[in-house]
Simulated scan of single mutants.
Amino acid sequence: MNTHEDSISIQFQGLLKECEVTIHQQFNKLDNPILNELFTYHLASGGGRNRAKLALYSGCAVNLAKKDTLAIAAACEMIHNASLLHDDIQDGDTHRRGREAAWYRFSVNDAMCAGTLMLSAAYAAVTEVRTATAELVQHMHDRTAQLISGQVLDLNHDNQQSSLDQYLKIAIQKSGSLMALPLELTMIASSNHASLLAARQAGESFALAYQIFDDLQDQRKDLINSSCNIVYVLEASGLSRPSAELQAVMLVEFYIQKALEQSQALPNNSGQLLADMCHQLSMALSPYTSQEAMQA
């Protein structure tokens, strides 16, 4: 790691806790004990905060003002968490990260309202950015619309009637939209518009790799719930189960490599954290690639 990367890493680590405070501050002013308790409970469930981390790291790398970097990070993380609150209701998932889901612990109506408010709060947060505010808000809306479109496609998805192209479209819209967003907003706020395409492609490629890897791990649960899963989509196309799994592993490797290449095209090493995430995913995939080699 060179001196520039060391400096980015130090700034990044210092901003992580501040970002969490920024998110909570959006709700501390509410005079509503039910919503306050629900938000505190949901946010305390953990999660990698990967979208916030991507915004914080890339913001530090391109020397974006601290206030602007925190606002973008908080906005991206709140959109993601709003989608999780709604997702759990629509999927009927009673637990998230080993704890009762917010709707199950409180109520469906409370969790729906909380998710909607959290989405609104994301837009309030990004108005704190001092440059290109209107463009940032519009871009957030475009990606939120893409996310919701992907969710509707997912809810109406049938593994037996779907194609690989349809699966990839759902994954890009539902997962890729929010993984690319923090990098895209950073590029817009720092006037690096020429890098917007690379930011989108890098985020979408990583999201595809991660989603397919997740499908490999969740085959049994997704079969029971009739959830969208690439293994069953490939199997429905005529592949045997082992061949479908091997194809899925190869797709994860393909999209990891694409994300790595695209992240390196971002300015000032701002894609390094995404590249690190790619390496971590590649390591997590290694048990599957070992099985692939044995069956080859």
Rank of each mutant, 00 (worst) to 15 (best):
A293W: 09
R97E: 10
T69S: 10
A124Q: 15
L70C: 06
T40P: 01
A209V: 10
Y41R: 05
R96L: 12
S282D: 14
Q211K: 04
R105F: 07
V129T: 10
Q201R: 15
L56P: 11
S58I: 09
Q173E: 11
A125T: 03
L260P: 01
V137I: 15
M250Q: 14
C76P: 03
D31C: 07
A124D: 15
R49P: 02
S162V: 02
D93W: 09
Y288S: 10
L260N: 11
L260R: 14
T116A: 12
T131C: 06
T3I: 13
S195L: 08
V252L: 01
E292V: 13
N156L: 03
L38A: 14
S190C: 02
A134V: 13
A121C: 08
A73P: 03
A122D: 04
A132S: 08
F39E: 07
D87Q: 11
F12I: 03
Q13W: 05
I72R: 11
H24M: 15
D222A: 10
R97Y: 10
F106C: 10
E128Q: 14
A202Y: 09
L15Q: 11
M1Q: 10
Q291D: 07
D215W: 04
M78H: 08
A101P: 00
V21D: 03
R200H: 14
V108S: 06
Q211T: 09
T133W: 01
N50G: 06
L85K: 09
I170Y: 00
C113N: 12
S227A: 14
R143F: 06
N159Q: 02
Q211I: 07
D218S: 10
